[in-house]
Amino acid sequence: MKYAITFAIVALATIVYALPKPDDEKYTTKYDNVDVDSILSNERLLKNYIDCIEGKGKCTAEGEELKQHMKDAIQNCCDKCSEKQKEGVKKVFKHFEEKKPEVLNKLKAEHDPNGEFEKVCREKVKDIDI
């Protein structure tokens, strides 16, 4: 009986220790199959996502998830992102740099006005091929 109680306590402690802590949590991969390229190539869809993020329009479930985690993802350089999400972020950033600099500047002004996160993040994701 004594061994069973000891085993139960050790097992419970192991489970609790292994549970993800808030800092270790990753963003959901539920929407990792969203085709980022098709959104970026469709002006109407892209505008809907931008309006969602800016709080000027309705959000899809994917847009709401993005909006909810955007500031955190910028500030932690997408540390909680899956590899697929990191690739998507790099694609979107590159697209905005080349084709929608006004949108990128607006997002930077709101989420990274001093450019501190951008500098660190650019260095961190430079070796992700798209």
Rank of each mutant, 00 (worst) to 15 (best):
K2T: 15
I5P: 02
I5G: 01
I5W: 12
F7N: 02
A11T: 09
A11C: 10
L12E: 02
A13P: 00
A13F: 15
A18R: 11
L19C: 09
D24Y: 04
E25P: 07
T28G: 00
T29A: 04
Y31R: 00
D35H: 02
I39N: 07
S41D: 07
S41L: 04
S41Q: 06
N42G: 05
R44D: 07
R44W: 03
L45H: 02
N48R: 11
N48G: 06
Y49L: 04
G55A: 15
G57P: 15
C59T: 01
C59P: 04
C59M: 03
T60D: 14
A61G: 15
L66W: 09
Q68D: 08
Q68I: 02
A73F: 14
A73Y: 08
K80C: 08
E83I: 11
E83G: 12
Q85M: 03
E87D: 01
K90Y: 04
K90I: 09
K94R: 14
F96H: 03
L104F: 09
L104Y: 14
L104N: 11
N105W: 00
K106D: 15
A109Y: 07
P113T: 06
N114M: 13
E118I: 06
C121A: 05
K124P: 05
D127A: 05
D127S: 14
I128A: 13
I130F: 12
